[in-house]
């Protein structure tokens, strides 16, 4: 049984984990317009959360955005690392998530075959 009491016990740990994330350098942004959702954005975002948890990555922020006009390339996932170009991945499925997080977010190696856009910061 889970209760609000469990949360009280976790309070200090959660507060410090949230502080680390607020100051995080890396952002992952998922397209959550109708086009994104219909293409599977919810499952992709859930897979991203699972993978971040699995890899114990604490300094990554996960955000969502609306339709940006590239509906045919949904699900779109952007990875923004400080001082690097913003990389947009297209047609992302839950099975691509591990590669994006391990190769790009953790080791700085862009997953070229999924890239649909690059914006210099």
């Amino acid at each position: 049984m889970k209760s609000l009491e469990d949360l009280k016990a976790l309070r200090e740990k959660l507060q410090s984990d949230m502080k680390v994330r607020r100051e995080a350098g890396t952002k992952i942004i998922i397209g959550m317009g109708t086009c994104g959702i219909a293409a599977g954005a919810r499952e992709v975002m859930a897979a991203i959360l699972d993978e971040l948890s699995l890899q114990n990555l604490k300094d990554v922020q996960v955000q969502q955005t609306g339709c940006i006009g590239m509906c045919e390339k949904e699900v779109l996932v952007d990875v923004v690392k400080p001082g690097e170009p913003r990389i947009t991945y297209g047609k992302v499925t839950p099975k691509d998530v591990k590669k994006i997080i391990v190769d790009h977010v953790m080791h700085g190696k862009i997953v070229e075959e999924l890239v649909v856009g690059k914006i210099e910061q």
Binding site: M1, K2, S3, L4, D6, L7, K8, L10, R11, K13, L14, Q15, D17, M18, R21, R22, L49, L52, S53, Q61, V62
Partner: peptide, 28 residues
């Protein structure tokens, strides 16, 4: 209510322990 319990103005639900708690709590 969760903000009050945690004593935070903004709660970051991407913290795995919290995501797991919410998932189990809502399912239950």
């Amino acid at each position: 209510e969760i903000q009050q319990v945690l004593g935070l103005k903004e709660v970051d639900y991407s913290v795995p322990e919290l995501t797991a708690w919410v998932r189990e709590y809502l399912t239950q």
